[in-house]
Amino acid sequence: MKPVNFDYARPKDVAGVISLIGDESRVVKILAGGQSLGPMLNMRLVQPDLVVDITGIEELRQVEDRADEVGIGGCVTHSDIEDLRVADVTRGALPKVAAGIAYRAVRNRGTIGGSITHADPSADWISILSAIGATVTLRGPDGVRSLAVEDYMLGALEADLRLGELLVSVNVPKLGPAARWGYYKSCRKTGEFAHAIGAFLIDPDRDVCRAVFGATESKPLVVSEAGDLIGRTGERDLAQGFDSRRADELIRDNGMNDPIDRQIHVAALRRALEQSGTV
């Protein structure tokens, strides 16, 4: 259970990282909090020649308050969000979800950028950030580009990173005062990876209504115009308007064949809706 003997670098800025990770002749891995990469290194599932630690970069440990969103640096941790060291603009959604990720000792090092780049389908950030409508900013040798979180994840453990690119920030929109959200994950044991995730957001002021089926074994299924599916915006009890048959059809059409699996996913979304009734 010891990693292979790799080289280590800790650049002081993003440019320093880009110059190291663009080298195709060897296996280079970016290390942030290391809470997913660490176990994989210990088990020698990953055997890099060089590990580039990005946690020394001040820019990635900062939060930028913009007009209608906040830019959260890639190395901000789950605990930073849980403890409100990062000001919340999501009416409690991100702090609540952060508090349910793995265990406190993991949250103290695990990072938001690392989690979505690792692209484990069962992880929490990918689902809730897709529901909220967050974007990521990537920087590489050819400049900067932005993607919706759900487009950044290509499939299980695969993020849309070009050679030499890294995630620098996760941009979270500021939700309106009437926004409601829900998040439910089905786990057999606290802190383990979820078997199913349901997440949704209704933000009438910004005319946004999104639903997400997460933990699908691939990228989350995002319904970006979910008004009919999850119940009308004006209703207090959203779960009443939930069209579970339609939800079931939706995920079946997207390749979820196992009926039990579908039922757990539909139930997860319903519970997410029920939860918002009391918000």
Binding site: D7, G33, D80, R85
Partner: peptide, 26 residues
Amino acid sequence: PGGGRDRLGPAGSGHAGAVQENKRER
């Protein structure tokens, strides 16, 4: 609250400067 932590980023990080790759013989 928060156990008194007042900085952002992974616990243990951000105290030291940059480290160059040591280009170990392979």
